[in-house]
Design a protein around this nucleic acid. Structure first.
Lengths: 226, 226
DNA sequence: GTCTATATAATGATAGAC
DNA sequence: GTCTATCATTATATAGAC
C-alpha cells in the first residue's frame, strides 16, 4: 500500500533539449500548478528562460496557453492510464501518480483545475467517478464490496467527497500561493484513513430508520412543488 | 426534513434607513458572496449606491472591508446559533440557514470564505466539526449512532467530505462568477442523499479485512522513514 | 524565433473640493 | 460625509527591430 512506485512508462521528457514552445508549456504547467492560474505570464516566461513576448508569440493569449497545458497534461494522464490498464486497480492510479516524484507537477496542475472549475475539471470528475464505479463493480462481483441501489450515484459521491475533502484541506492549510501537494496527500491520509475505513466498514447509523424513511419518501413523493 | 423554516429571530436589518457604512458593508457581503473576493471595489460601491472613494473612506482598504464583512457575518451566525441553542439539532442549523431566503447572502459569503481559505475558513471548519461531533456524541448515547474509535477524527472527516463535496459541485457546475447557492444545495441533496444514507447505514465494504489491516498497521508501524 | 519597448486596460488607493 | 478627478501599479497584449 505504501511503496508502489510501479508506474513504469517514460517519465515525460523534461530534458533541456526541447523547443522553446515546449519549454514554455512545461514552465506554465509548473507555475499554474504551484501558484494557481493567477500567476503572471512574466513568471512563466522567467521560469522558461524566455521573454514574456515569446510566450504570447507562441500561444497567442494566456487563456490559450492554459488550454495547451490542459491538453498536454490530459494526454500524459491518458497515456499513464492506458499503460497501466493491465493493472486491475485503476482507482488508485491517481494516488500512485500523486506519490511519484516526477508526476507531481501534473498532479498539482490537475488539482488547480479542480479548484478553478472549467471543462477539464468536469472531465476529471467524470473520469474519477467512472474509475471508482468500475472498481467498485469489480469488488461487488468479487464479493468484497456491498452492492448499491445506484452504483453510479455512489461512485460520484465517493469522487466528490474524496476530491472535495482534499480540496478543503488545501484551501484551509495552504493559504499562500505555493502548495506542497505531496504533503497535503500525506496529511489527508493520516487524518482521514481511519474514520473513512471505519465508516466504510461499519457504517455510521445504528439502525435503518433514516434510510428506510428516505426510500419511502422518494418512492412516493408528497407533491412536486417545483 | 424538508420544510423547517423554523429560524425565528430577527432577519438582519436590511432596510434602507441604514448608515452609509452599513449599506456599503451589506453590499460588500452580497458582492463577495455572489462574485467572490475578486469583485472590484467599484461594483460594491455601485451596489451600495455610493462612490468608490467613500468605500475606502469608511474602511481604509479592500482587505479591511472584507474583514468587516467576515466579522459581521460571523456575528449573525453566532446569534442564530445561540438563539436556536435550545434546538438539540445544532448540526442542521447551517442547512436550515441555507434554505432560508433571508440568510442566503450570508451563506454565500461563508461559502466564499471556505473557497478562498483564510482564518475564517479555519474557524468555520472547526465549528462544523465540533457541531457534528457533539451531534454524533448525542446519537451514540441515544443508541442511534455507532461509536467510533476516534470521534473527533470522524467528525472532522464528515465536515471535510460534506463541505468539500459541496465545494466541488459549485466549482464544477458554476464556472461563471455568479452562484445560485440554494440551487447547489438542492442539487447536492438530490444527487447525494441516497448514496450517503446508504453508505452511512450499510457501509461499503463487505468484510473487515481492510480496516483490520489498517488498525494492525498503525498499532505496529513498520519503520518511520520521515 | 526572439527580443526590447510600449500600448492599453483594470484596479486599489489618494487628493482635495464641497 | 461624500463626491470628482487622478495617480500608481500591475497585467495582458502588441509593434517592430534583429
Amino acid at each position: 500500500m505504501m511503496n508502489m512506485n510501479s508506474i513504469s512508462g517514460k517519465p515525460p521528457d523534461r530534458s533541456e533539449d526541447l523547443t522553446a514552445r515546449a519549454r514554455i508549456r512545461d514552465a506554465a504547467v509548473d507555475c499554474f500548478g504551484q501558484r494557481g492560474f493567477d500567476v503572471p505570464v512574466r513568471e512563466i516566461a522567467e521560469r522558461a528562460g524566455v521573454s514574456p513576448a515569446l510566450v504570447m508569440h507562441h500561444f497567442g493569449t494566456k487563456a490559450k496557453l492554459r488550454v495547451a497545458c490542459e491538453e498536454h497534461v490530459m494526454r500524459i494522464i491518458r497515456e499513464v492510464k492506458t499503460e497501466s490498464i493491465t493493472t486491475k486497480d485503476q482507482t488508485t492510479v491517481l494516488h500512485h501518480l500523486a506519490e511519484a516524484e516526477e508526476f507531481a507537477p501534473y498532479m498539482a496542475f490537475l488539482f488547480r483545475c479542480l479548484q478553478a472549475g472549467g471543462d477539464l475539471a468536469r472531465t476529471l470528475y467524470e473520469h474519477m467517478a467512472a474509475d471508482i464505479e468500475a472498481y467498485l463493480d469489480a469488488g461487488v462481483k468479487a464479493g468484497t464490496v456491498r452492492p448499491s441501489r445506484n452504483p453510479e450515484a455512489r461512485a460520484r459521491w465517493l469522487a466528490a467527497t474524496g476530491g472535495g475533502s482534499l480540496l478543503m484541506l488545501v484551501t484551509l492549510r495552504h493559504p499562500g500561493p505555493d502548495v506542497d501537494f505531496r504533503r497535503v496527500i500525506r496529511e489527508w491520509s493520516e487524518e482521514f484513513t481511519l474514520p473513512a475505513l471505519e465508516l466504510y466498514t461499519e457504517g455510521l447509523l445504528a439502525d435503518r430508520s433514516m434510510l428506510d424513511a428516505y426510500l419511502l419518501y422518494v418512492s412516493d413523493p408528497p407533491e412536486d412543488s417545483s
